[in-house]
Nucleic acid binder design. Sequence first.
DNA 1: TTTCGAATTTAGAACGATTCAAATCTCTTC
DNA 2: GAAGAGATTTGAATCGTTCTAAATTCGAAA
Lengths: 348, 348
Amino acid sequence: MESQTSVDRKITLNDIAAGCGVSRATVSLVLRGSPLVNKHTRARVEDELRRQGYVYNRAAANLRRRTSSSIALVVNELANPFFAEFAAGVDEALGEAGFVTLLGSSGESSSREHAVLSSLIEHGPGGIILSPAEGSEARAVLAAVGARTPVVLFNRELGGTLPEYAHWDRLMLDNQRGTRLATEHLIAQGHRRIGFFGGHDDSSSSRERYAGYEQAMQAAGLAIAPNWRVESAPTRVDAARATHALLAGDAALTAAVCYNDAVALGLMLGLNQHGRQPGRDFAVTGFDDIAEASLSMPPLTTLSTAPRARGRQAAELILARLQQPQAKAGTVVAPVELVVRESSCPPL
Amino acid sequence: MESQTSVDRKITLNDIAAGCGVSRATVSLVLRGSPLVNKHTRARVEDELRRQGYVYNRAAANLRRRTSSSIALVVNELANPFFAEFAAGVDEALGEAGFVTLLGSSGESSSREHAVLSSLIEHGPGGIILSPAEGSEARAVLAAVGARTPVVLFNRELGGTLPEYAHWDRLMLDNQRGTRLATEHLIAQGHRRIGFFGGHDDSSSSRERYAGYEQAMQAAGLAIAPNWRVESAPTRVDAARATHALLAGDAALTAAVCYNDAVALGLMLGLNQHGRQPGRDFAVTGFDDIAEASLSMPPLTTLSTAPRARGRQAAELILARLQQPQAKAGTVVAPVELVVRESSCPPL
DNA sequence: TTTCGAATTTAGAACGATTCAAATCTCTTC
DNA sequence: GAAGAGATTTGAATCGTTCTAAATTCGAAA
């Protein structure tokens, strides 16, 4: 009794039904494990399913049931280890719940984000997990995804405001507390002239992280010179490029709190190129604790955000929202933890 | 003329048709830019589409047309930067072609791989890009995905053999040449006692990489002692753990060719723990050239595989296969390039 | 005014599942 | 052996599109 590996035509419920002399409806009941069908019939149908190599067509079922079994995940850049871990966590948790992940990537461009969202939404995801690109606007995102599909925002706020009827949940990191801890640590090490490096101020996470730095500086009675703030794209290369501006702005800086780890690693690269030694004559802190942070030279002091756990959490939020579409939207702030390594040396 | 943001019911072709007094068929033609419809009618329909905030239901269209607009991507571990870059490349290229990526992750377990494939296939992807887990068998994968969905294998071969009718393309790295180059480089540096570290021999890539090492050693007239080969899972942690076995096997080894960068980084960690200094008294090479390779201490000599470009290439292969389902299956071997950094020091 | 062909539009049957209400089958029980 | 109650099974409509074949409209030529 060889199994039928029909290369030509797709096997449907009709084939199975015909194959064992029951109705399509019965086969459907068997598939979904309904207690209604007779034990004996069930066995016969299951044999036939196996014999013909049936595969369930979830799209057809979703169409009829007006449900969805997918969730879209849109991140800025998958190659950033922070987002890679996050995505891995999302996918893991969604998979366990029987959902599949539709992937999209915005490359930090709000126009690409719009295009990606518009395309993904046509595939009818049950919900969307979105880590907004820099400068992404609430109205634009709403226009792309419509009001029917729930959204969980991760990591950043959108610009502008959302109409009331859009119940969008948020999963944010405790950005401000994070950079405050990092700054306090640097101050405790003896630094006084501390810059804030990288990120763009049109992203909310960047503003929040700056606020934490500012708060710690103020609390310690330290004034911040305007040129201690240098922006850059949140990538290693652009941070390395921008290093010059930081050093040129005030050559007497002894430390910098960085927007994230990618930026911090770029800054360390840039410092080396300028003949400075990060971890010896210049202290650096990051944000995210990506895997590379512990391997860099010197190992990077940073804030651990457990991105994989955050991914799982985002998945759980969107799944919960699917259960309770009308529940009030909530914001979860995930804690961060300071991980002290050697890049945050005391001043010489 | 405010736009209708109907939160309650999904807008369908019928709504649009009714809204501007044409038939459903006409609206469908407009949507797909058919030249059949009258200019004037088209404009009227397009206005109505906008006004009602219509979103296309690709699932329904795919059902009717018996087509698919998604490709499944199954990797071992998304958090591995090599695969993250690969996935980013795949998603990029698929997106440009109007396809969406269905993500799946096997965690190097062939049973999870089977489960993930079985689940993904129900969503009806047009094709599958699979980077097999260690020990994954051709028959098992075929059973999960069936013979109707084309597959592109990346990076590793499957165990066992595939029936003829399954036209599966392959995208492989030039593994053997890669480790041969690395080994030759170490020999040129003056090393004679060189081990091969990490990976499991039930993965084809591991066997091929070992073969390249063996080939170079033989060509140089160097015998290989059996305990110069130590296996480990292809992860940093397991490699660090296995370091002991390598050093205990032969304390006089002066260099090791590693299965991949993750393993090499783990080995460097392990060496440090054993009081050895990678890049000074022990030479190490990796494979993949992940972003961390250039940042590790010391920077890692490795083989660049351009994973993002490989991702794009895999996407192109599967898209080409969709055009030509009956074409003969092919194997593409992507070149690799030796990147010499400081971890491959000469012997002391 | 008729007629013919080209240009437009449309009715209705798919696609592969689910779902209800209704039909049928099987037992008990009287 | 008929009735009634469960237990099973099923026909037909439906989800939101596409597509074929046929219907309709239109304008120009006869």
